[in-house]
């Protein structure tokens, strides 16, 4: 009993450290890549190639004056960024980054928990993450923040539906809700080949869920200053920031797990493949941000409800019929 808890605790700590390091370098990657796309250099002065930039940013954010609007709702103002960050980190408990490996003679699984409703847990955590946005925008008592949070939560709820439908089609194909089983079902053929529509739906939904361009309306600078986190600074802002970038890593990891075969791949060991695929998707996210203009809010909602959701429903029905015919 004690060893089980201990092993899980050690794995959790290692994973959180890894994800936070990944977050730190995701910000650097984004700034450097965006700069290259715009024919600039980007931050390259702190350490070799600017590699120490994330730590400089972190130290700066921690030592900033902790500012709070006088009319803010204290409790919720503090609670919101914490919800955002914790919900983003929580999903890593069920996302597998590799199969079981031999490690100093002991068999170690490269996931913390193989829950038999794993993918639902991920969706649940992301729906809790919405509260960070809503409560943050409301509690700072600022009209731009409130407008940003309303927009953003409407967007998150709508696109969660598209993501959910894409996930349902994957679950139907794999025949399991456990992420480990879903990866194992892709040993021979990746689901991107069996579920191209689901893949597209999921990817578009992922862009919207992480509030990335072209769906970054919640923080449309021209209209809303910075959206829901307008009144946040210092470490509390950093927590929102962690939530956002960890969300990008999560979504890339989920695309990898659900559609690109997870740790399956030739030559390299499993975790390397997960890292390579995830990294490629993060670069794609940044590339899209550098390329696409922002859509209008009504266009965004219409696209979500009138195109993605019907398409997702059709995809689920088609998948169900095919699975029943082939498998039954």
């Amino acid at each position: 009993m004690i060893t089980v808890v201990l092993v899980a605790a050690v794995k959790s700590v290692a994973l959180v450290v890894m994800v936070l390091l990944g977050f730190a370098y995701a910000t650097l990657l984004e700034r450097r890549l965006l700069a290259r796309f715009q024919l600039r250099y980007g931050p390259n002065r702190t350490g070799p190639f600017g590699l120490l930039q994330p730590f400089a940013d972190g130290i700066k954010l921690i030592f900033k004056e902790s500012f709070m609007p006088a009319t803010a709702d204290r409790l919720i103002y503090w609670l919101a960024p914490a919800i955002s960050m914790v919900a983003a980190l929580f999903v890593y408990a069920v996302i597998p980054i590799g199969p079981e490996i031999r490690f100093f003679g002991a068999t170690v699984s490269l996931y913390i928990a193989d829950v038999n409703v794993g993918i639902l847990l991920v969706l649940g955590a992301s729906s809790i993450g919405v509260y960070g946005v809503i409560l943050g925008g409301w509690s700072s008592n600022n009209k731009y923040a409130l407008l940003g949070c309303l927009r953003s939560s409407a967007q998150l709820i709508s696109y969660e539906l598209a993501i959910g439908l894409a996930v349902v089609s994957v679950v139907l194909t794999a025949g399991s809700l456990s992420l480990v089983d879903i990866v194992n079902a892709q040993q021979r053929l990746w689901f991107v080949a069996l579920q191209p529509v689901g893949f597209l739906l999921f990817f578009i939904g992922a862009l919207a869920e992480t509030n990335r361009a072209p769906f970054d309306l919640p923080e449309a600078e021209q209209e809303l200053i910075a959206g829901f986190h307008t009144e946040y600074g210092g470490f509390k802002f950093a927590m929102f920031y962690v939530g956002e970038y960890v969300g990008i890593i999560t979504m890339s990891l989920l695309v990898t797990t659900l559609f690109l075969g997870g740790w399956h791949g030739p030559l390299l060991p499993g975790p390397h493949w997960v890292a390579v695929k995830t990294f490629a998707f993060m670069c794609l996210f940044i590339w899209i941000r550098a390329t696409m203009p922002r859509v209008r809010h009504d266009q965004l909602m219409a696209f979500g409800w009138k195109v993605l959701v019907p398409l997702g429903l059709l995809n689920v029905v088609a998948t169900a019929v095919i699975v029943a015919l082939v498998g039954g």
Binding site: G124, S127, S153
Partner: peptide
């Protein structure tokens, strides 16, 4: 489901 539906949708 309790978390997804009640916490994630209805209370929102």
């Amino acid at each position: 489901l309790q978390v997804i539906i009640y916490a994630g949708a209805i209370v929102v």
